[in-house]
Amino acid sequence: MTLVARFSALLLAFSMALPAMAMSLDEAKNALESAKSQGLVGETPSGYLSAVGSDQKSKDIASAINDARREAYKKIAEKHGIAVTKVETVAGQKAVEKTPSGQYIQVDGHWIKK
């Protein structure tokens, strides 16, 4: 096997393993409250979480939770015959309102500690 063929096989194997390294929803749920309390993840008015900083674990938590939220919002919108954006907006408002003091929310594109 040539060096190029070995490299290609290794690259293919690595790329197939990437999805397996993604954070599961259960892992994200278990890490969410701690990440919020530490100021790593915050609520946005869009109805989704976002990483406050740039660390990958926070981004992974937000991504896994947001995927689940997106599916839930879609189901709610279909059930009530409304736009998903309406569900996202209402969910975002509620999430921001429910966020305890000391945790981060996004206001006008900027993070503030509530």
Rank of each mutant, 00 (worst) to 15 (best):
T99N: 05
E97F: 00
A28E: 06
A13I: 10
L11P: 00
I61V: 04
G47K: 07
V96Q: 06
V96F: 12
V52H: 02
A28M: 01
G47L: 02
A13S: 10
K98E: 15
K113Q: 15
N66W: 01
T44E: 10
G42L: 02
R70E: 13
I65P: 07
P100C: 08
R69C: 03
T2V: 00
D55R: 05
Q93D: 09
G81W: 13
Y48C: 03
K98I: 00
M1N: 11
A64C: 07
I105E: 02
Q103V: 11
V41I: 11
A22K: 09
S54Q: 13
V84W: 06
L25G: 04
N66D: 11
I61Y: 06
K114M: 06
G81L: 04
A17S: 15
V90R: 07
Q103H: 05
L3T: 13
R70F: 07
T2E: 09
G81R: 07
D26Q: 15
A5C: 09
K75S: 09
A83Y: 10
A20I: 03
K114I: 06
E33R: 07
V90P: 02
L32Y: 12
A91D: 10
S58E: 03
M21Q: 11
E27G: 10
N30Y: 10
L10F: 15
A51L: 01
S46V: 01
A20M: 14
Q106C: 02
E78W: 00
S58A: 14
A68N: 08
T2M: 13
R69P: 01
D55T: 00
M1R: 11
A91M: 12
A95S: 13
A31I: 05
Q38T: 11
P100G: 01
K79H: 12
G92N: 01
G109F: 00
T2G: 15
A77W: 03
